[in-house]
Design a protein around this nucleic acid. Structure first.
Length: 667
DNA sequence: GCGATCAGGT
DNA sequence: CACACCTGATCGC
């Protein structure tokens, strides 16, 4: 369960995966995926009211997330306020990378990345090197030595396929029920099963996938299939009586023979031999290994690779404490690894400021100073916000050719001061106040969007600068003032399965590791296992990464990835005029969004960015970089640092050199 | 009546 | 073990 409060110390004016409390004041929202624990407050009346008053407030999420979100009427009010942030959907994970004056910050969302895979993620690299990441807000669900290793996705999928095969091939009346807990996230499992056996998977509803053909084709509402993933509150009880959640108990008058497979996380210690990706828990019940999150060793591998200055846990595993988790993360962060001086994030440049900043801003200077260095390593959600000024740039990878940048500098007012003012000026009136400028329609069109529906939204897209401003527009008071809104086993081969009691294992993960075949397929999911590789968008047919590959196109493993050229991918909001100014100073949001679930579909979006990645490389990064591991350990003298400095020097910006200190969350 | 929270269960 | 919900009870508005 995510305990992330929604705000990042570096960019406190935006909120991610949390929409309550302090987050009600955010200038922009980001949703990484549609799991309830990441949607807290998203449909609350208070937020809804705020939207009605603040026309600039938008929600950034991937098309797939948008699609799933809007399937529920409860979230319909967001429809016109959703901005497509999809960029590199090839990752199965949903993550956002923010690049701005306060440093490059990565919010991982929930993710699972196999060892070594970070090296293939273009968004994390620049110029053949790992980017200089100031902070990472990490999915630490399994950041506990107890969860040292979790069988790879490919291994797990392989085990499930074999289990299913051993059952459904016995007779048409032998059916399996996939007892899935979460609403989304198992799509890759369904699509792989469907593809493998040529049988669609029965689900209760599939309208949410209506625009995701690659998933849709593998699902059905016809209960006569042999593979079910339907759900019902009393499903377990039904199952006891050989009744599936959808109610059927027989086929052609012949009683069904059913087995249930419950995807659940299985983990193994550092030295334990990994085995049993499938465990038999009863006469006709099994548990199959399945994880949405990275294992302890995967987390460490990932973190040591990106080597950020700071790492903040988004989740505190049960039985752990924040301090303990931090103790684990800290040694993997830069400050503790080398003594080299590191450069602090630069504050906004004066030069940039003058250029970008809106004239209206009053006390810009007050906030000019570079952020106090080490961004506070306080808790992720720090209440005290420092006023900061910065310009933002959003790049959309979608349209390679069109890069829109928006830059602007804003300084933030202190919360108090801005509250009222903003509320009055901006929120109450639909017309944008000075701060929130209207974006020329033409410009907006340029933004990345894609789907028709989105275009509309895009038009209303607020300017990035606004988001990052520190002003808080909403106060309780203001909220109140707003107008109220109107609106069986036994027969299976012993080798394959083991009884939960113990001993026997069945489908060994070790063996399965060889099944590259399966693994490949598995790569579609968001998380790729060790052998799986990230797929490029194209492979998916424009579809989602996740799941799907199967449809016709088999994912190739080792694809080089994606690319998100960060620089290119920016979602960009407004401001054309300031365009290319000092890019460095702008905040770039590079959402690499994917549904954690496997849905990363972009199917509904035609042109898609599929092209995005591939082709163009933005700056210095070339796709070839993937193949080249970016010397993880090479801590320092990074070229990028030098390059960074050169750029700063070239633009006349000031550079602050900081002595390296270890400052991982100072708590 | 609704939402938020907690407990409990799958 | 944990997860990602669900349900139901309680409390407050």
């Amino acid at each position: 369960m995510s305990s992330f409060e929604g705000q990042m110390a570096e960019y406190p004016t935006i909120s991610i995966d949390r929409f309550d409390r302090e987050n009600l004041k955010a200038r922009a929202y980001f949703l990484s995926h549609c799991h309830k624990d990441h949607m807290k407050g998203l449909r609350a009346p208070t937020l809804k009211r705020r939207l009605e008053c603040s026309l600039k407030v938008c929600l950034y999420c991937s098309p797939v997330t948008k699609e799933l979100l809007l399937t529920s009427p409860k979230y319909k009010f967001w429809e016109k306020r959703i901005v497509n942030s999809e960029v590199t959907e090839m990752y199965f994970l949903s993550r956002f990378l923010f690049q701005g004056n306060n440093g490059t910050v990565l919010y991982t969302g929930d993710f699972r990345l196999a060892k070594g895979e970070a090296a293939r993620m273009e968004l994390l690299h620049s110029g053949g090197r790992v980017k200089d990441i100031q902070s990472v807000y990490l999915d630490t669900t399994f950041c506990d030595p107890r969860f040292y290793q979790i069988p790879s996705r490919g291994e797990c999928l392989s085990g499930i396929l074999e289990l299913v095969r051993g059952w459904i091939t016995r007779s048409p009346c032998h059916v399996v029920w996939l007892n899935c807990k979460a609403a989304y996230g198992y799509e890759y499992l369904f699509t792989n099963l469907s593809e493998e056996f040529g049988i669609q998977v029965h689900v209760d509803k599939l309208d949410m996938f209506r625009n995701m053909p690659d998933i849709l084709q593998h699902l059905t509402t016809d209960r006569s299939t042999q593979i079910h993933a339907c759900r019902h509150p009393k499903a377990e009880e039904y199952f006891q009586w050989n009744r599936l959640p959808c109610g059927i108990t027989s086929k052609n008058r012949i009683p069904l023979r059913t087995i249930s497979i419950k995807p659940s996380t299985m983990w193994f210690g550092e030295r334990t031999r990994k085995t049993d990706v499938i465990v038999r828990t009863g006469e006709s019940t099994y548990r199959a290994c399945f994880s949405f999150h990275s294992s302890y060793s995967e987390i460490k591998d990932f973190l040591s690779y990106i080597c950020p200055v700071n790492a903040y846990p988004n989740v505190i595993p049960v039985g752990m404490t924040v301090d303990k988790v931090i103790e684990i993360l800290k040694p993997l962060c830069r400050s503790s690894q080398s003594t080299e001086p590191k450069y602090k994030p630069l504050g906004k440049l004066k030069k940039a400021r003058t250029l970008d900043r809106d004239s209206e801003e009053e006390d810009d200077d007050l906030f000019d100073d570079p952020l106090p260095v080490p961004l506070r390593h306080k808790a992720p959600n720090q209440q005290t916000v420092h006023p900061e000024v910065f310009s933002t740039t959003a790049v959309s990878e979608n349209e390679p050719g069109k890069l829109r940048q928006s830059t602007g500098c804003h300084k933030a007012e202190s919360m108090q001061s801005s509250l009222v003012a903003n509320f009055v000026d901006c929120e109450e009136s639909n017309s944008e106040s000075e701060e929130e400028l209207e974006i020329p329609a033409s410009r907006q069109e340029d933004l990345s969007p894609v789907t028709p529906s989105q275009q509309k939204a895009d038009r209303e897209v607020p300017q990035w600068e606004v988001f990052f401003k520190r002003t808080d527009e909403v106060t309780d008071e203001s909220l109140e003032n707003c107008p109220s809104s109107t609106e069986a086993g036994g027969s299976l081969s012993p080798k394959l399965f083991s009884d939960s009691d113990g001993d026997s294992t069945h489908i060994s993960s070790q063996n399965s590791s060889q099944s590259t075949h399966i693994t490949e397929q598995g790569s579609q999911g968001w998380d790729s296992q060790s052998d799986t590789v990230l797929l490029s968008p194209q492979e998916k047919n424009g579809g989602d990464v996740t799941s799907l590959n199967k449809t016709g196109c088999r994912p190739r493993i080792k694809e080089t990835v994606p690319a998100s050229h960060l620089e290119q991918n920016v979602l960009c909001p407004k401001d054309t005029h300031s365009d290319l100014k000092s890019r460095d100073q702008d905040i770039t949001v590079v959402p690499t969004v994917g549904e954690p679930t496997t849905l990363t579909g972009r199917e509904h979006i035609p042109e898609e960015k599929s092209l995005l990645n591939l082709g163009t490389n933005a700056d210095s990064q070339s796709s070839s970089d993937f193949e080249i591991p970016a010397t993880p350990e090479a801590e320092l003298p990074k070229q990028e640092h030098l390059q960074y400095l050169y750029e700063k020097l070239a633009t006349g910006e000031s550079i602050v050199v900081e002595k390296r200190k270890c400052s991982l969350l100072d708590t």
